[in-house]
């Protein structure tokens, strides 16, 4: 017996966990040593928040096959709920208000997931637009949500957990990174469980799923709730850790589409896909602007940048849908395999 318990972890551990652990080590130890404030503020923090949002949407769209265009709305719900819980309940720890915010987003997600019981595909996507417009309208209309602040823009509270304050870009980076890691682990466990298989079964063939005993309605609603929970927390990170301000305008339809593109470009039904997609979406505009001003000089002003960004991104999405429907993840795996066989041969 003792030999078995001794052998198993030692034998299995490295193979499956080597890659994620390497990435974790780089993220926790390597990046803070090398990175500048600019890297944290402009790249890593939005990357983490968008990755998490992409991860959340991937549970719903990638795994359970329910298309949603309301992701930004659920982010907004998360951000505003966390702000209000923090503001109105004295002494509520930040973590608790974040979890409550996630639950609030899950609740709203559940309500707007109800049409999925009847609608599919394109029609469902349109009905989730209702969430997008309704939430944004409600947050702007009722100033109670933003604590009657005149501009509708409010400062996010300090990020502190049991007395320890995460200050400065690096502190906020660590905070966001930890939240993302925990939720990624939970999402990974979820999609590899029986419930995760149920998600995929509902996506691939609803009738067959129902016949083998998958509770289809429950599974769909659960996908909406779990996805909105994660997206809601991503909204908290976006507002509290990245922007340091909470405003409804940041959570518009453009953001919803951005998150959908992250999932499509990164790879549907893949945990890593959200990170790949978010990396591309965040880094791509920066690279484009650098490259543009380097090649074209002054002609490449912000107007041209904005336009060229949209054009290139649009072209990229079309290319991906045609050439690599499984996204960057599939591309990455293929490249790695090529390199693997090449090194073996040589």
């Amino acid at each position: 017996m003792s030999t078995i318990t001794y052998d198993l972890p030692a034998y299995r551990f490295p193979a499956r966990w080597a890659t994620p652990l390497t990435w974790l080590a780089i993220a926790y130890l390597g990046v803070p040593l090398l990175g500048s404030d600019y890297l944290f503020e402009a790249i890593l923090l939005p990357f983490l928040a968008l990755s998490l949002a992409g991860l959340g949407l991937n549970i719903l769209t990638g795994y359970a096959g329910q298309v949603s265009l309301g992701s930004a709305a659920f982010m907004a719900v998360g951000a505003f709920a966390a702000f209000n819980f923090n503001l109105r309940i004295d002494g509520l720890p930040l973590i608790v208000s974040m979890v409550l915010a996630g639950l609030a987003a899950a609740g709203i997600g559940l309500v707007f997931g109800l049409p999925s019981l009847r609608l599919k595909g394109f029609y469902l996507a349109v009905s989730t637009l209702a969430a997008q417009f309704f939430v944004q309208w409600a947050l702007t209309k009722f100033s109670w949500f933003s604590n009657d602040s005149a501009s509708g823009v409010i400062d996010a509270p300090q990020l502190s957990v049991s007395g320890f304050a995460f200050e400065g870009p690096v502190g906020r980076y660590y905070f966001a990174l930890t939240v993302v890691c925990v939720l990624t682990l939970l999402a990974y466990r979820l999609v590899n469980s029986q419930t995760g298989r149920n998600f995929i079964a509902v996506r691939e063939n609803e009738t067959a799923a129902r016949i083998i005993g998958v509770p289809v309605l429950k599974t769909k609603l659960l996908a909406f709730a779990a996805s909105s929970f994660v997206i809601g927390i991503a909204g908290v990170l976006w507002a509290f850790a990245y922007l340091r301000t909470v405003e409804p305008a940041g959570f518009n339809l453009d953001r919803s589409f951005q998150i959908l593109f992250i999932v499509i470009i990164g790879g549907l039904a893949s945990i890593r896909g959200a990170f790949f997609g978010a990396a591309l979406i965040v880094v791509f505009p920066l690279v484009l602007s650098r490259l543009g001003s380097f090649l074209l000089g002054d002609i490449f002003n912000s107007g041209v940048l904005d336009m060229s960004q949209r054009i290139v991104l649009g072209a990229l999405i079309i290319l991906f849908l045609i050439l690599e429907p499984d996204g960057l993840v599939a591309l990455w795996d293929r490249i790695r395999k090529r390199i693997g066989t090449a090194t073996v041969r040589s």
Binding site: A201, R203, E204, A208
Partner: peptide, 9 residues
Amino acid sequence: QNLALFKGL
């Protein structure tokens, strides 16, 4: 009659 497997699994 027409296969109803979950192809992605």
